[in-house]
Amino acid sequence: MRNSFHHIRGLGSARSGTEHFWMQRLTAVANIPLVMAFVVILVTLAGRSHAAVIATLGQPMVAILMIATVLSVVVHIRLGMQVIIEDYVNSEARKIALLMANTFFSIAVGLAAVFAVLRISFGL
């Protein structure tokens, strides 16, 4: 173990160093309080009218919290799904296609959610 680590130079063979591992952990830690707060908001909004939900989601602190949660979650799910694809998909072409689809999905989810929160905040 010690030797092989000792011989790695710079960012290693994947050229990305520990970026993936680090971001996975960073967003995991961030997700704990963010998602908990998010769940609390959702629980208080369950069964409420559209007007009441809009009023709550439009508050600056709630909106910022929602956007922060979405961003952290989206980065986290993209990294997690990337590992699953790399683990199970053997064909190179399919792997690349799925990795691209994974990125597109994550960005689409993030953009749609952030857009919706901003639209609610700035008035329908």
């Binding site: 559209h50 939900v53 799910i77 997690g80 799904m81 749609a112 919706a116 329908l124």
Partner: peptide, 26 residues
């Protein structure tokens, strides 16, 4: 993890519905 990944679509649906109209939200 996979369940939560695809489940984000429910959340997006909910947010977009809230951001569009009371009818979609209902």
């Amino acid at each position: 993890g996979v369940t939560l990944y695809f489940g984000t679509l429910i959340l997006v649906w909910w947010l977009v519905a809230a951001a569009t109209s009371p009818r979609n939200f209902d």
